[in-house]
């Protein structure tokens, strides 16, 4: 997926992808976010996630490491924070070519629901989405709920990623056991 460079509006390390979605929605951002996992354990899980926005509403998702687009790309991105986040503004016209690629598109509320697990943010995002976006997904037979569920399934199918999450938690638990005086 090729995107023209945009104007950097924000760059920081975040722990929760929800931050990106709230920020983009509040700014009514047209542009894109690049999310690069920072965790050393997951560095072999190379690549970054890209989510584009129109007026703050997510349009397409893509993962450069797995080369997957749409809901599976959200699964690739999930749960591997903290991330280095870069948020770019870009003219809508420059996003058109990317936004035309159906297989990269995600329904408006899906990132909030499945990446952030935040139903009210998803509702707010859908309210902001133009009617054609909502109709669009129904017309193409890509029922939003189905695709959301498929992101969760894609996540659960990724055994390596889940093994990495578990290993990271295990190490954290042992490290903290020392700090907290638990005897493990």
């Amino acid at each position: 997926m090729k995107l023209p460079s945009g104007r950097l509006v924000r760059s920081r390390v975040i722990t929760d992808p929800r931050t990106v979605l709230v920020d983009a929605l509040d700014r009514a951002l047209t542009g894109y976010a690049v999310l690069e996992p920072q965790d050393a354990l997951l560095l072999d899980d190379e690549g970054a996630g890209v989510v584009t926005f129109e007026d703050g509403v997510p349009v397409v998702a893509y993962h450069t490491g797995t080369d997957r687009g749409g809901p599976p790309a959200l699964a690739d991105l999930a749960a591997s924070g903290p991330y280095r986040l870069e948020l770019y503004a870009l003219a809508a016209a420059d996003l058109a070519a990317v936004h035309d690629r159906d297989r990269f598109r995600v329904p408006p509320g899906m990132a909030a629901e499945r990446l952030a697990g935040d139903q009210s943010l998803a509702d707010r995002t859908r309210e902001r989405a133009p009617a054609d976006r909502l109709a669009d997904s129904a017309d193409r037979g890509t029922d939003e709920a189905d695709r959301s569920a498929s992101a969760v399934e894609a996540f659960l199918d990724d055994e390596e990623k889940i093994a990495a999450i578990r290993e990271q938690a295990r190490q954290q638990a042992h490290r903290r056991a020392d700090e907290w005086g638990f005897d493990v």
Binding site: A78, A116, A151, V152, I165, R166, A169, A173, A177
Partner: peptide, 19 residues
């Protein structure tokens, strides 16, 4: 049944197992 909740649920399990 969301990605963050499942991910955090797995972390809980790892903590539990570790302890």
């Amino acid at each position: 049944p969301t990605i963050p909740a499942l991910s955090d649920g797995l972390k809980v399990q790892e903590y539990a197992t570790s302890y």
